[in-house]
């Protein structure tokens, strides 16, 4: 069957299946299992109402358990085992981790990931805050915002292509078609530079891509927060003689501190998972490896599930503080 047809078919089955599951299970509950009539009608209605939430929740939580919760534990288990021929697994304790810690490529990924974690959230939040503050004051601010926000819709792979053109290098005797080298030559550079193979600094050229994408996100959220600041606090500070920079840094920023933290952590998570950019632009060569790509490498090129799982667990470990913090915040809000 043609895949597109299969797709239509799946949508139909999915939608009809979902609706009929919910409808029929409700009917079954109300009419067959606990009918709201007869001698025990009252008790039956109560029973039905206690069970109904679980009917509503079941498909979603079944999928969540199978596709997100179970894998966390399974990955943990796999990271402690080696795959043997014939679909057998052998428990090897921490061997995979030991092996991984002995690899220079792993420590390179860790160093790069730390660099990404330091630079990308800071730069995106900074630019986002700047853009939010500046665009809030001008008439065409909304157009400017939507243009800065636009990269958000572009795939990381598309962004990688876009930026590869920016970093393109041609032999010295030809015209440069990458804007960075064209500028470099224009301002007196001697020879074009292959930016993406420049050890250490190439990491920053890759980071630029993610910063370019995430700034729009930061801007949208922070701009909403800036608008939520009570006008009186700003007016009061101006009457007290604060300049525009003082108003911004001493009055506005402290009031949106929580939002800044939320934006920062959200971008941090995006950074920890960054894969496509590195995969498409350098594939971890020239000392640009990051954990997510290292993991993919172990998984599909080296075909080593044990070490792949071990590196995935490292990513999980780095995410865990944010996870705990998020859950605690959510619980506090519900009280």
């Amino acid at each position: 069957m043609h895949p597109a047809l299969l797709g239509v078919f799946t949508i139909a089955i999915g939608v009809v299946g979902c609706v009929s599951y919910f409808y029929l299970s409700n009917v079954f509950l109300d009419k067959v299992l606990f009918p709201a009539s007869g001698p025990k009608a009252g008790r039956n209605i109560n029973m039905a109402n206690q069970i109904r939430p679980w009917l509503f929740l079941f498909p979603a939580f079944f999928a969540l358990t199978l596709y997100l919760a179970y894998p966390v534990f399974e990955t943990l288990r796999l990271s402690l085992t080696d795959r043997l021929p014939g679909n057998r697994y052998e428990f090897v304790g921490l061997d995979n981790y030991r092996q991984m810690f002995a690899e220079t490529k792993f420590w390179e990924s860790m160093r790069n990931n730390m660099l990404w974690l330091l630079v990308v959230p800071a730069a995106s939040t900074g630019f986002g805050l700047l853009a939010a503050q500046l665009t809030d004051r001008i008439k065409w601010g909304n157009i400017a915002k939507s243009l800065i926000f636009m990269p958000m819709a572009i795939s990381l792979v598309g962004a990688a292509v876009i930026w590869k053109l920016v970093y393109d290098t041609r032999p010295i005797e030809q015209d440069q078609i990458g804007v960075l080298n064209a500028l470099y030559i224009f301002f007196g550079g001697d020879a074009p530079i292959t930016w993406l193979t420049l050890p250490f600094w190439n990491n920053f050229f890759l980071m630029a891509v993610l910063i370019w994408i995430q700034t729009g996100f930061a801007m949208v959220i922070l701009s909403a927060a800036l608008r939520g600041i009570p006008e009186e606090t700003i007016e009061a500070s101006i009457i007290d003689g604060a300049g525009p920079f003082q108003v911004f840094f001493k009055i506005k920023v402290p009031q949106i501190k929580n939002t800044i933290v939320v934006v920062w952590t959200t971008i941090t998570i995006a950074v920890l998972k960054v894969f496509d950019i590195v995969f498409a632009m350098t594939n971890g060569q020239w000392e640009t490896q990051v954990l997510a790509n290292y993991m993919f490498d172990k998984l599909f090129r080296a075909n080593d599930w044990g070490m792949g799982s071990a590196s995935a667990m490292i990513i999980m470990l780095l995410v865990t503080p944010i996870l705990v913090w998020n859950v605690r915040n959510a619980r506090n809000e519900m009280r």
């Binding site: 920890l272 997510a292 990513i315 995410v319």
Partner: peptide, 9 residues
């Protein structure tokens, strides 16, 4: 926030 890298294998 669970990274989907964990779910792959």
């Amino acid at each position: 926030v669970v990274p989907l890298q964990l779910a792959l294998i």
